[in-house]
Nucleic acid binder design. Structure first.
Lengths: 231, 231
DNA sequence: AGGAGCTTGTGATATCTTTCACGTGGCAAA
DNA sequence: TTTGCCACGTGAAAGATATCACAAGCTCCT
């Protein structure tokens, strides 16, 4: 890998890499061979300086005066993000949201696959969704260990989330993506990210409310907003 | 409202308010009348200083030497976040994810309700989920205007997302929660938040990969991580 | 009433992140 | 080869956010 990562990359930079990666995939489909930081920034809603800085955290992938080679940059991003290593994932909680996650084709497209699903409800156990058989909770430990699953998606009710989390960690899971609206506690060797729909909606609600007060609207272009709570 | 917001609150502070709000709701159910910043911080995975600072952006709600009154603080948070104003929301895209969103009970519990749903697929139009009739896309404009819907959830394929966004904005929507894995462009008077599952999973994948390299694990307690990309 | 002990609210400070601005290397054309 | 232009990579500056640490205010007890 060219260049050395002098300092640790900010969490947000890593998230933006995902955006860059996807954008590069689109460019490649379109037959674009080379892209500048400027170009990439308009496509991802970032700034040129930010794109360059983000990439520079991991090495120097571009050529001065030219830009970045789309294919090579994409493959570097893939390597950095661990895409295509085919991480197998486990899903716990096969309710409405869990079922939707099982069916979500964005995961396999990026090389992540849900290979096991669990639920505590006996009526759901045994059902098959997208070739995955729903297993009872008491098989979590054995299955996760056996298949060496490191990542899990948590789509259970808030009340059950902490207990299930502990089960999963005990079984050897190292990464958790939590959808339950609750703040989970995990030991520091476990990575945790959360998608919290209520927080998103309430944040928008706040902005809406605030804007009613001041009401100052211009006509610029505002760009994408995602979300991250560090550490 | 007591106190004055001297400076604009960071976006992250607002997201944390949502956490505080939910935690307060739990405390109230448990009959807890008063809570300190210290206590609240352990429950939400923040720090005491951060809790105090976050709250101080909006006023002074506590009493020195005592703490915060759970009920009154909760009601202040509710006001700030605009919870309970009963914002009606529209959903576009009633696929797997869209259906799950319709069924998600976290929204109505916080006072947000999906009152209209739209889909471009004729096979889905007319179906009823949770008392909501799925309407065709060409009724977006009229319906959103008529019902004065300001918030919309976008659960359509990435390819369609930008076009649908523009339809919604044209119809008067001011806030969008986007689930499509794409960076949307919206005018600056429109608020946009995105939930991007691929980014979350790839972020975890990155951390996992990185940890394999250095492998330095201690036994502290790590706390919740959500996600936010500012402006 | 006075003092001990607790917890808030907040200046000041430290840390983290983004933006600026320019030196450097690279390409192309004359 | 030289000239002109382009776009990266990166120190340095600015800006944003989090943390520290303490004065101010409240309650209770004596």
């Amino acid at each position: 890998m060219p260049g050395t990562p002098r300092v640790k990359a900010p969490q947000m930079a890593i998230r933006r890499l995902s955006m860059y990666y996807r954008t590069l995939a689109v460019l490649r489909e379109q037959g674009v061979a080379s892209v500048s930081s400027e170009h990439l920034s308009t496509l991802t809603g970032s700034t040129a300086a930010q794109v360059r800085r983000d990439l520079a955290y991991f090495g120097s992938f571009g050529r001065r005066g030219v830009g970045y080679d789309v294919e090579s940059l994409q493959s570097h991003m893939r390597g950095i993000l661990g895409i295509g290593e085919g991480w197998p994932m486990a899903l716990v909680g096969v309710g409405n949201l869990g079922s939707a996650l099982l069916a979500y084709d964005g995961f396999p497209r990026q090389g992540f696959r849900i290979v096991e699903a669990f639920d505590s409800d006996p009526r759901r156990v045994g059902t098959v969704i997208r070739d995955v058989v729903v297993k009872p909770m008491d098989q979590v430990r054995e299955t996760v260990r056996e298949r060496r699953i490191a990542m899990a998606l948590l789509a259970v009710p808030a009340k059950a989330a902490q207990a299930v989390t502990e089960q999963l960690i005990d079984a050897g899971v190292r990464c958790l993506l939590n959808f339950a609206p609750i703040s989970l506690k995990v030991p520091s060797h476990v990575y945790l990210a959360s998608v919290d729909l209520s927080i998103e909606v309430e944040y928008l609600s706040y902005l809406l409310r605030e804007s009613r007060a001041e009401d100052s609207a211009s006509n610029d272009i505002r760009t994408d907003v995602t979300t991250m709570m560090p550490l």
